[in-house]
Write a protein that binds this DNA or RNA. Structure first.
Lengths: 163, 163
DNA sequence: GAGCAACTATAGGCATAGCAATATTCCCTG
DNA sequence: CAGGGAATATTGCTATGCCTATAGTTGCTC
């Protein structure tokens, strides 16, 4: 085992990226919890709400989050039980069903977002001078586009209009 | 619900950070699996191996990873069963025990690291020109230091010499 | 030196999420 | 229009990790 590996600039770099992400994640999770949401539930709420009609097919929701389809089934189960979402059958394809954000879901997201944005600003974007931030984001964009797991909003084709 | 929220630069920024991280994580996980390691196991192996004596008390290991103490107990259980680690009692404090990397653990890490470094380079550091990368890392360092969960190597006081 | 609070590791119970299997539906091909 | 392969959502099983409780140890205070 070569001890020098730990000083490898690649190890340093990836360590920075993940430690920054972990620190932010922890703060996000704490704030989500104040509003009765888990990180995954918040993500689902965001993805659905930013989609046309505040809805998405289960499969598409899975593709846009880090969840598997069975994971989506279960998260939607929970959120439906809590009244944040409801399922709606797709009239044109009886295999598909849509997860739709309810008024309660929108309201919950409304309550949660201001604090969320405040945390992002306090611990991330506000830590850097504007040009520094731009440079950081440019780099991240580059990496994101390279590894792109297809998670960018709108990357999947819009759902059929009749659904 | 204000649709403009989704165009908020803070949302964009945090999205970039997390999508980049998620894409890299997925690739790492696939490569770890080729070597019979989970991401958490790799992290444990790294933290221990970079520590003096290739060992760390359970509590310190928990502090340096994203795991709780009970989580560490169980990961070390598995890795000990697989022969990658062993437990060693601390002679000066009978409450504590150390997780120590075995020869098999070092060898496993040796096998895994080259591919890991290759992935970092291919999808992260190699995606950017050197000055771009420096700018990105400067920004990340700034954010990391702000949110610092105390995970930086060597941040915890060195273990008593007799342990 | 007896009592007590803090610390350390572990075990039990619980929640979450992935994989594989399943049932249903769709669509294409002949 | 019949049949087979692909797609969709769900469920069972399993693995993982957190929270809480527990047992043992330490060190401080009186």
């Amino acid at each position: 085992m070569d001890q020098n590996v730990f000083d490898d600039p690649r190890i340093t770099a990836i360590g920075l990226l993940f430690e920054a992400g972990a620190g932010l994640s922890a703060r996000f999770a704490a704030q989500f919890e104040e509003h009765g949401l888990s990180p995954v539930e918040f993500e689902v709420l965001m993805r659905l709400t930013r989609s046309p009609g505040h809805q998405l097919r289960m499969t598409d929701l899975a593709a846009q989050t880090s969840l598997s389809t069975s994971g989506v089934t279960r998260v939607v189960d929970r959120m439906e039980r809590d009244g944040l979402l409801r399922r709606r059958a797709c009239p044109s394809d009886r295999r598909s069903s849509y997860a739709v954000v309810t008024a309660a879901g929108l309201s919950r997201l409304d309550d949660t977002l201001p604090g969320h944005l405040r945390i992002i600003e306090e611990w991330f974007t506000g830590q850097l001078a504007p040009p520094q931030l731009e440079a950081l984001l440019d780099g991240l964009r580059r990496v994101r586009d390279a590894v792109h797991p297809g998670a960018t909003a709108g990357s999947t084709e819009p759902a059929p209009a009749d659904c």
